[in-house]
Design a protein around this nucleic acid. Structure first.
Lengths: 156, 156
DNA sequence: GGCGTTTAAATAAGTGTCTTAATGAAATAG
DNA sequence: CTATTTCATTAAGACACTTATTTAAACGCC
């Protein structure tokens, strides 16, 4: 089989995918509005990543930055917007008052889940078009690719 | 198998991948510099997409915009930079002087190939870590995902 | 041939997301 | 108790997009 050709396809596909992923889904707004939350939210992929991270409990800004894969200032910025939209809140860690813990605003847990749900839909549709094996391979490739790029292009 | 979990993984992975793909590889600069081309180039994925598109012959700005998946002004901008770096050139279509044809600068064909090669490396490494079947499934998933997002999130 | 409409590309203005560098405030070490 | 380190934020700036507008050429039509 021609791997060369596959590589070329990926090379052309990746940037396109990247742009599409970056686009704020139009759906989320509706979801939020329907609940009467005072938001004209633009929830970006980064925001969703934060919400996912938070679903496993409160996290510090630094931890979130690492989870999401951005610099601390970028994380601050993402959190700012979520706070602004009333979805999460900041509080000081009692043990170490330098660290700022981020957590869902009480009651927002469910809303956050809904928002994520919207983001998930297209992915779900894709995964469900694949066989189990294909799905596994797909995720495996995605993970490998992310790691590979993260490490930085290795010289031959 | 738990597809839910796979979906969550993808949801977390995609934005990270997106950011990594967006980063200009450090390698290209060296490639270019080595050839004595007066460039401190920042070649982005979009630029690479254009170079790929051009490898099949001259293209109009509009065609390139469509190939790459961006608006015409964005294409103009991408082309601007490539022209600035002396890699491609604009010329008018004789048949219709409104359309601007973009093509490699003579001799730059090879350089472009090199630059693409750098971009390809990490992808190549990923693909080659997969079995034939996995690779096929990976690309298939990528394609489905891109199409799915492109169509816009479909309401249930 | 002239005139309004359409089409291609470029320009202008603005937005969002990231980066690094500098700042502030709290913890830790000696 | 001061010096250093660490966490978060603010500041400044780079990019890659977007839509709306402008300019130039082509087309259709009388």
């Amino acid at each position: 089989m021609d791997r060369e050709q596959l590589i070329d396809e990926v090379l052309m596909l990746l940037p396109a995918l990247m742009r599409l992923v970056g686009r704020p889904g139009p759906v989320e707004m509706g979801e939020i509005a329907r609940r009467g939350i005072p938001v004209d939210a633009h929830i970006s992929p980064g925001h969703v990543q934060i919400l996912i991270s938070l679903s496993r409990g409160p996290r510090s800004v630094g931890q979130l930055a690492e989870d999401v894969g951005v610099s601390p200032p970028a994380a601050t910025q993402l959190i700012d917007k979520l706070v602004e939209h009333g979805m999460v809140e900041r509080r000081h860690d009692h043990a170490d008052r330098r660290v700022v813990l981020v957590d869902y605003v009480p009651g927002m847990h469910e809303v956050a889940r809904r928002i994520m749900e919207d983001r998930r839909k297209p992915i779900e549709r894709t995964i469900n078009s694949l066989t189990d094996e294909e799905a596994r391979a797909f995720v495996k490739g995605l993970k490998l690719m992310t790691e590979g790029l993260g490490t930085g292009p290795v010289e031959s």
